[in-house]
Amino acid sequence: MPFCGKCNQYRFPVYNVAVSMIDVNEQNGKIMLIQQYGKSVCILVAGYINRGEQAENAVAREIKEETGMTVSHIKFNRTKFYEPSNTLMCNFTAFVKDDSELNTNGEIDKYKWFEKEEARKNILPDSLASIFLNSYLDE
Rank of each mutant, 00 (worst) to 15 (best):
N28E: 09
K75S: 13
I131Y: 11
K6N: 12
M32E: 06
C90L: 15
L102S: 04
N86Y: 11
L44P: 00
V14A: 14
K6V: 14
Y136C: 00
H73I: 00
V24N: 02
R61L: 00
G38H: 04
E53V: 08
E83S: 12
T67Y: 03
G68S: 11
V71W: 07
I49P: 07
G29I: 07
N105H: 04
L102C: 05
I22T: 05
S40P: 03
R61H: 03
S20M: 10
L128G: 02
I31L: 02
W113L: 07
P125W: 07
E139Q: 14
V24L: 02
I123L: 09
M89S: 04
A46Y: 09
S40L: 10
I63D: 06
M32T: 02
P84F: 07
T70Y: 02
G68E: 05
S72N: 02
G52D: 12
R61C: 08
Q27A: 13
I131R: 04
D138I: 11
T104N: 12
V24W: 09
L102N: 03
I108A: 00
M69W: 01
M1G: 15
N122P: 04
K64G: 02
N28H: 07
D23L: 12
F12K: 15
A18W: 01
F95L: 07
K30R: 12
S20V: 08
V59G: 06
N16H: 02
M21E: 06
E26I: 00
N103Y: 11
S72W: 02
E26N: 06
M69H: 06
A119W: 05
A58V: 01
N50A: 15
K6P: 09
I131M: 12
D109P: 09
G38T: 05
K39R: 15
Q54L: 15
N103T: 13
G29M: 00
E118K: 07
F3I: 10
T79P: 08
F114I: 01
E66K: 04
T70N: 06
V14Y: 10
S135N: 14
E101Y: 10
F12R: 15
Y10G: 13
Y136P: 00
N50V: 14
Y48A: 11
A46E: 05
E101A: 12
N50R: 15
E66W: 01
Y136I: 03
F3S: 05
I131A: 01
R120F: 03
Q9V: 15
A58F: 00
T104D: 13
E101F: 07
T87H: 03
R61D: 08
M89N: 06
Q54M: 13
E53Q: 11
T93D: 03
N25C: 12
N105Q: 09
G5K: 07
E53C: 11
A94H: 01
N8K: 13
M69R: 04
Y10V: 15
N122Y: 08
Y37L: 13
E139P: 12
D138K: 08
E83A: 12
I74W: 09
I108H: 04
L133T: 05
L102Y: 05
A94G: 07
E56T: 11
I123A: 08
N57Q: 14
S72I: 10
I43R: 06
V41G: 10
C4W: 10
K121L: 00
A58E: 00
L33G: 00
N105F: 02
A94I: 09
S135K: 10
K121C: 05
S135T: 09
T104I: 15
R11E: 15
M21K: 04
I31T: 07
V17M: 01
